[in-house]
Design a binder for these strands. Structure first.
Lengths: 193, 193
DNA sequence: GACAATACGGAACACGGTTCCGTTTGCCAA
DNA sequence: TTGGCAAACGGAACCGTGTTCCGTATTGTC
């Protein structure tokens, strides 16, 4: 079961970690679109080294944020178990997701880029987080707290979109808007016929 | 009141129209990010001519879509006057706005780009459409059909965001999500104390 | 028709992503 | 310890795009 590890060279492993740190710093300073050359310079390596370790920018971004994405995924079941109503749990989880995205400058935009480079980034987020979102949403639907005509994918996509450009204009509060969307999930009151 | 027109040369006026047509075609074919050289080639002019007429891409985009934006702005008051409830009028207007954005490949994304080139594009949309949205929203608030804690700017920004990437994945329906957001605008029912 | 102002074309430049290959480094076996 | 080879490195070179600049062509006027 131990993915037969071809045992990389020592300098390669060292550089990989150095790159991860450099990339994380560059992302904080200049967003996830930080120029490749900048990241290489921070790490004190050549650009070729970056491409060898992380063939696409998506690979690098995933590697940098993997821990946080996993944490977000893990929080879903906990919230569902520990919160009064499924709808409230979903709202709390969306809050977590939004907080993550808005603090990663440019990440939400990258998720929506039509550049095929980012397809694997998109795929990773969907793979890890969609099931979590789906279970929260379906619990809410089952409890009669959410309308059944919204697909989990569409909800995640919409929330991701709402995070784009957050923090650039103080008049726009992504978290508030995401909560508005979640509020809209409530089933419409039966027409008072 | 007639903005003293310096009376441009005949070839200049001709080229301006040619460029507008070429840009419109290029935008349809390749989105609003169509390469400058492509647009120039379509128009049969040099790239310098584009920059002379439209110093920034935003100027070109605004020129191409001005009519449609004006039409959208004009529709606001009409809807308010001709629709049963202010909230329904707002919902209908948002639908119009979303339809416009999703059919202009890449336009919604450009509106959110942090590239300063697009600042004037953003400003134009805000100038023309924000007042319309504001009057619809405030009518809904006055009628008790919308919570008062959402700023018109935030609403427009959110709806614009929801349109990003629409049409790229069939599982995502921007219009549906926008309507969900508008539904979330309804004031929460008073707590059944 | 000649002259000046206006507009044009496209080569040249800037910048960022990506590739490629000559050089260096680490590992292992002799 | 050392010889050799595969792995890894560095960064120059390349490509595509936006942008600028200036020599040339066109227009309008006198």
């Amino acid at each position: 079961m131990t993915h037969e590890a071809p045992r990389k060279r020592a300098d390669a492993r060292r550089n990989e970690q150095t790159l991860l740190d450099a990339a994380a710093a560059a992302f904080v300073a200049a967003g996830v679109d930080a120029p490749v050359r900048d990241i290489a310079a921070r790490a004190g390596v050549g650009v070729g080294t970056i491409y060898r370790h992380f063939p696409t920018r998506a690979d690098l971004i995933v590697a940098v944020y993997r821990h946080q994405v996993e944490a977000c995924a893990a929080a879903g079941p906990d919230l569902l178990a520990g919160t009064a109503s499924p709808h409230a749990a979903l709202a709390a989880w969306i809050d977590l997701f939004v907080d993550f995205l808005v603090t990663k400058h440019g990440l939400a935009a990258a998720l929506r880029s039509d550049d095929t480079t980012f397809d694997t980034l998109h795929a990773y987020f969907i793979d890890r987080l969609l099931p979590v979102c789906a279970s929260l949403l379906s619990a809410a639907v089952t409890a009669g707290e959410a309308r059944p005509d919204v697909e989990p994918f569409a909800l995640m996509y919409a929330v991701g979109n709402l995070c784009i450009g957050a923090g650039r204009d103080p008049r726009y509060d992504a978290r508030h808007m995401a909560q508005l969307l979640v509020a809209g999930l409530h089933p419409p009151p039966p027409p008072a016929a």
